[in-house]
Nucleic acid binder design. Structure first.
Lengths: 193, 193
DNA sequence: CCAGTTTTAGAGAAGCCTCTCCAATTAATT
DNA sequence: AATTAATTGGAGAGGCTTCTCTAAAACTGG
């Protein structure tokens, strides 16, 4: 019975992703999303009560998409070293396949206004992070190391280092070189020992 | 013969650093700097022709301070592996000693408006980066590896990985744990082989 | 004490952004 | 055909920011 929507939520989020990729989180304004999609500002405010909600949702949708694939890579192998190497590759491969979303991920939740998020969004973000961190902890444990420092080292190897590799090229305005996945995997292997 | 200044450039830059550390680059506005220092907006514009110049100078002052110490660590040892380990430690140690400036460095030049900088600022930034990259290239060479990929791996080990370690803790709102320098050094050693 | 120079001091225009509000539109249901 | 509900479409208030401009202040060398 209602009038059919012309500007659905995912469409607006897609625009927000592109804006974040090109102009950074501060470039994701309600008016910029409106202009880019051709929607009137009223339609944007019909989908998101305020800018904070838009920023939170675009961040969460992106991190959840990333984490879903990352988690799959990390749990898809039995041998922990193999799993780690696959996860490191996966970070780079996902960024290669989704350059705009990857550019968004290189910023932190803080830059997407996390400090102003309502509890529900914070909870969602924490849950995703906890899930990944839990898997990384299990991996560290199955490597025989159970200290917090060992977990931190594994996290550096399987998350932060591949992300850094991507960041370096993105910041230089380059596309990811063909060997990037190999390099991430080699580095992860070296760090896992 | 002139009236003595009450708000000198370094004072305004110090305020800009604090603002960048707490509110990010977008929080570094001319009015915020004015408010924080108690200066009238006219005085801020007397020191910086526009916001772009303020952002550029606060970025450059900080990176140059960091790079000076980093370069010293990287060239302070004869053995390349020892030099690399010292450099990795130095990144973390410097961030520990200068938390606000470190928080600023975790953002990129792009976020400080690099795209709008006049040539002179771009040149200064490039020169600093070239200098560090040159030293890292020499180190890779003295390790017997001379391919671009080897240089990239060394850069990851001695710059990006320690920076990631710092970023992870800063984003979590934590202070750097005592073992952070050790961890950075261990990881660098593992990656240098 | 005067002349000269830098700096302070702050008012105000112009622009962009967020957000509110309400009338008009559109399609399914009755 | 009338009703109903979601959505569009856009005007406009209010706030913050950048930047300009002018006048006054403060100090020093002559």
């Amino acid at each position: 019975m209602p009038r059919p929507p012309r500007f659905e939520t995912p469409l607006l989020l897609d625009a927000a992703v592109r804006l974040a990729a090109t102009a950074g989180p501060s470039g994701v304004t309600m008016s910029a999303v409106a202009k880019r999609t051709g929607a009137p500002s009223g339609s944007v405010y019909h989908r998101f009560p305020n800018r904070t909600a838009l920023l939170a949702e675009v961040w969460l949708r992106t991190t959840e998409r990333f984490q879903e694939r990352y988690h799959a890579a990390l749990t898809g192998e039995d041998d922990p070293r193999r799993a780690g190497r696959a996860a490191a590759r996966q970070v780079v491969a996902w960024c290669r396949a989704h350059p705009d979303e990857a550019a968004l991920l290189l910023h932190g939740a803080e830059e997407f206004g996390r400090a102003d998020w309502p509890d529900e969004y914070v909870r969602r973000a924490d849950e995703g992070n906890r899930r990944v961190l839990g898997t990384l902890t299990a991996l560290a444990k199955s490597l025989g190391e159970d200290t917090p420092q060992a977990v931190e080292r594994v996290t550096l190897a399987l998350v932060d280092l591949p992300v850094s590799l991507v960041r370096r090229h993105y910041r230089a305005g380059e596309v990811l070189p063909p060997h990037a996945e190999d390099l991430a995997e080699e580095c992860a292997a070296a760090l896992l020992g």
